[in-house]
Design a protein around this nucleic acid. Sequence first.
DNA 1: TATTGTTATACTCTATAACTATA
DNA 2: TATAGTTATAGAGTATAACAATA
Lengths: 148, 148
Amino acid sequence: MEPQNRKEADVGVDQSDLIESLVRISFVTTAVLSRIAAEHDLSLTQMRVMAILRDRQGGMNELAAYLGLEKSTVSGLVDRAEGRGLLKRTRNPSDGRGVHVSLTDEGASLALRGAREVALALSPMTSVLNGAETRRLTALLDRMLASS
Amino acid sequence: MEPQNRKEADVGVDQSDLIESLVRISFVTTAVLSRIAAEHDLSLTQMRVMAILRDRQGGMNELAAYLGLEKSTVSGLVDRAEGRGLLKRTRNPSDGRGVHVSLTDEGASLALRGAREVALALSPMTSVLNGAETRRLTALLDRMLASS
DNA sequence: TATTGTTATACTCTATAACTATA
DNA sequence: TATAGTTATAGAGTATAACAATA
């Protein structure tokens, strides 16, 4: 006999509960990120671009790979952010085809401010846990992230 | 003396680490949801509409409130999903202004299939934890969710 | 020929403002 | 007047396909 409920058979009851909680926490977190971005007249994607460029600069293809978007899409994103003075294209001197995208000072400042505001906006939720719980939760999340 | 690092002073080092993990897990989860949705020619928002309608039907305003979107936006979303036969509008007999939005059989079937596929797609990540860890993580996430 | 990036095109998502119909 | 919903409009995000420039 086949089990009646494939989902439970495939992933287990406990994992189903976890997945539901993961999806819910993701929507809450994404909503906060979107709101902070909107307060700076940025889309969530634009905010991601800024956050990525804080850690690593590079060409359009690299940026597209990090974002999981087509390079034509990234061209448009970079166009608009560049028009606002948040980032800049520079030509790659060793390869005339490539461009190098990096934050301007204004962009870096905005990215830092945004990161602080995100932390503050999420802190009411994260602060319901005590120190030990916070570290335990972080460790569990990081183990899942390391596997993906 | 003011502390040099406002972020740490405001939310604490442990909370900063948690917030970074939360943001990362949210992007991973959202990417999986978007991919599954795209495999069914749905946007992430359309998939949310279907998931919401699985649990609770209602009018356009209610739906807009759940989604956090303008009612005009929801009109368009419902238009397109209705055109594909995934959901239907019915007039509210007691109030001629209102409509009632609900899944069609095809829409309900797609929503169920999508939920199963999401669970399966996330299970490689969730299954790195053992049973006790899975339950502990779920409990911690749910406590944060209950506060928001 | 292959690679990097841009442009053209089309569609979806989204908000604001104006509108219709009902209450 | 107030409420539920739609429509008109405009801009951003997105992908596909075609293109230009460089390697």
